[in-house]
Amino acid sequence: MTRVLVSGGTGQVGSFIVEELISRGHQVTVGGRTRPADGLFSKPVSFAPLPLDPNLDQVAAFGGIDHFIHAAFDHLPGKYRGGEGSDPDGFRVRNLDGSVRLFETAQKAGVKRCVFLSSRAVYGSQPDGAVLNEEIAPQPDTLYGSVKLAAEQALAAMARPDFVTSSLRITGVYGAARPELPHKWQTLFADYLAGRPVEPRRGTEVHGSDAARAMRLMLELQPDQVNGLAFNVSDLLLDRHDLLKLVQTVTGCVHPLPAPETGRARGVMDTARLRGLGWTPGGTELLKKTIRSLSPG
């Protein structure tokens, strides 16, 4: 049994990661600012205080830990891009300097593997219709994307045979790890079902359980398959028109659907690198199943 420390383990993506790991027999410690409520997860987890503060010595949190998954990120509620609010300097210190300090602490503590939860945002603006793969030069156009990329690069530079590192560039994560958690489309669904106008939009999506399986693979694959690398994690390019059409089918709602987006083509994330290691996402069937579970009525 391996012991895995997951920072941000109670967040939207972190919750999926924790559930995936404990379902596979890993012993999980959730790191963060506050202890998870009893019974929050399907099996017991430990807790270690782990704020994003580069000035703290947090080596005690890594005692006996085999692997570290860094999924914590400090931002304004509900915002990633623009999540710095009026404090860009503090945002960078916490999320870049604080992350790098945790990577360094993990390495010094003898942690064997470290995985960073990065983002599609590292690619920033790319030409219309571009296919985004891990070989193209990132061009982050937000502070969020710049911080994620800098943390990725810092971790990759630390890769060693005895400290295996990787980063997952995850796109929009949908689904709810637990029934009481709000999901990313909650407001969108409510607006549509209430007959309020919905702006056209198209975006790349992946189910949280698929993202969590990708994270687990980073801990289980041979070191030379992942060490120092970044991996795209994405599944569907989804238009709100098509998404809400599924909601319409499930609920019988008669409100008109938004028009398909006709603006700038959003780049598709190429996941060949990750798929080549055995990762297969749930596709449209998992999307339909999730819509049935999330839609009221």
Rank of each mutant, 00 (worst) to 15 (best):
R266H: 10
G263E: 04
L286Q: 15
A71N: 00
V164Y: 01
R160L: 15
L188A: 09
D239Q: 07
L76I: 12
V250H: 02
T29C: 07
F62L: 01
G8F: 11
P161K: 14
I17M: 15
D97F: 11
G31N: 06
H70W: 03
R35S: 03
D89G: 03
H241M: 15
R120H: 09
G276P: 00
S167M: 06
G98T: 12
D74P: 00
R92N: 03
T165M: 14
G278D: 07
Y80S: 13
M215R: 00
P200C: 03
F189S: 00
V4Y: 08
T165A: 13
V13R: 08
D224P: 11
T2A: 15
G32L: 08
E220V: 09
A71E: 06
R216Y: 04
S15Q: 05
A61K: 00
Y144E: 10
R240A: 04
K148P: 01
A37K: 13
D191A: 06
A259K: 13
I22P: 04
E285D: 15
D141E: 14
P223E: 02
G145F: 02
S167F: 06
L244D: 05
G208S: 02
G63S: 10
T10S: 12
T187I: 11
V131G: 08
P54W: 06
G9M: 06
I291G: 03
A130E: 04
K288I: 13
T34G: 00
P161E: 13
P182H: 09
H207W: 11
G9I: 09
S86Y: 06
R101V: 09
T251H: 04
P88L: 01
L155A: 06
E84I: 02
S295G: 04
T34A: 03
Q186Y: 10
A60Y: 07
I291C: 01
R202D: 07
L5F: 04
E19C: 10
Q186K: 10
D128R: 01
F73R: 00
L246F: 15
L286Y: 01
P44M: 11
V198W: 02
F116I: 07
P296H: 08
V173N: 00
D210Y: 09
G297V: 10
S7G: 10
R113T: 15
A154L: 00
R196K: 10
P200A: 03
L143H: 10
D87R: 13
K184M: 11
R240I: 03
Q248M: 11
A37L: 14
P182K: 07
I136Q: 12
P77M: 09
D97G: 02
V147N: 01
V147G: 12
G64M: 01
L286I: 09
T249V: 10
D38M: 04
A177Q: 05
T171M: 05
Q27I: 04
S118A: 09
P138D: 04
Q248L: 13
P258V: 11
R275V: 05
L40V: 15
G129R: 02
V59L: 08
P140E: 07
Q153D: 14
K79H: 07
A156C: 14
V198P: 02
G228H: 14
P260R: 11
D89E: 08
V173K: 15
L237S: 12
S234V: 02
G78M: 08
L238M: 12
E84N: 00
V164E: 02
L286D: 14
F68I: 03
H70R: 09
